[in-house]
């Protein structure tokens, strides 16, 4: 099972993963620039789409921009690459090395992912002042920030578990590029953070309630932009927690089987 025990080995692994990523300075800088660019383009596109109107279908442009800005910023944190890491280790046979370490395999993969997220957090935090200055982001108030923070954390766990499950498929299929690419594309759309869920047809919206993607993206952004508040907050949290239980159990079962399927590629 995913070992989220706070042991020093785990932090060491997360730290070294972040270090490996920041060592290439150009790539590091590019991560920062590209996020700024995305923020700018998104705003330009939606302002053009609204064409001077204040609201469409009862959604004010201001709410829309705040929602999409927070969705973009948090998207960097919720962009989880663990499936890719797992496949890489399996395909190259490096999984052999992971299995002789005194830490569980999934624990190591998770620690690396968290290390990566912390690197991304530096981009996101440094762009928040800019977003506030441009008026794309509403200054946070504590009654929104608290549930938002909690929901963001849960969204992260849902994403982590979903992509772990996808990554584990590589123990059987070896190559999961096609599945991963398809899901990656779908998930950005289905998470409701590219086009907000409220602009989607009812039928699709109903389907999405039964998929984990919105729990890993839309829900926290909706809380932040003030779409959900008061007692209604119970629902998104319940959905997220339910997904964590379901996906957690699935990961546990699949990983148990994967361990017996291990073949080390390349001798």
């Amino acid at each position: 099972m995913i070992a989220l025990r706070p042991n020093p080995a785990w932090f060491g692994m997360a730290r070294i993963a972040a270090r490996s990523l920041t060592i290439y300075r150009f790539q590091h800088l590019w991560g920062f620039v590209s996020l700024g660019l995305q923020l700018f383009l998104m705003r330009a596109v939606w302002e053009a789409a609204y064409g001077g109107r204040d609201s469409i279908d009862g959604v004010a442009i201001r709410t829309q921009i705040v929602f999409l800005t927070i969705a973009l910023l948090q998207g960097r944190l919720l962009n989880i690459q663990i499936a890719w890491s797992i496949q890489g280790q399996v395909e190259s046979g490096k999984v052999a090395i992971d299995l002789i370490r005194p830490m569980g395999f999934l624990g190591q993969m998770t620690a690396r992912e968290v290390g990566r997220t912390f690197r991304n957090l530096t981009y996101v935090l440094s762009l928040i002042p800019l977003a506030l200055l441009l008026g794309s982001l509403r200054p946070p108030d504590p009654f929104t920030m608290l549930p938002y923070g909690a929901s963001l954390l849960l969204a992260y766990v849902v994403g982590l578990l979903t992509w772990t499950l996808v990554g584990l498929m590589s123990f059987w299929l070896l190559q999961i590029n096609a599945i991963r690419a398809m899901l990656q594309m779908l998930s950005t759309f289905l998470a409701g953070t590219l086009v907000p869920l409220w602009f989607m047809p009812d039928a699709l919206r109903t389907v999405l309630t039964f998929l984990p993607f919105q729990a890993a993206g839309f829900l926290p952004a909706a809380i932040y932009s003030g779409q959900v508040h008061g007692l209604a907050l119970v629902q998104p949290f319940a959905v997220q927690l339910a997904w964590i239980v379901i996906l957690g159990l699935a990961v546990r079962v699949v990983w148990g089987r994967a361990q017996r399927k291990i073949v080390v590629q390349g001798g």
Binding site: I16, S20, I97, I100
Partner: peptide
Amino acid sequence: IGVVFGQRSQLWWDL
């Protein structure tokens, strides 16, 4: 146990 695979390294490549 300590393990060394001649064909594979346990060291972190970039660091």
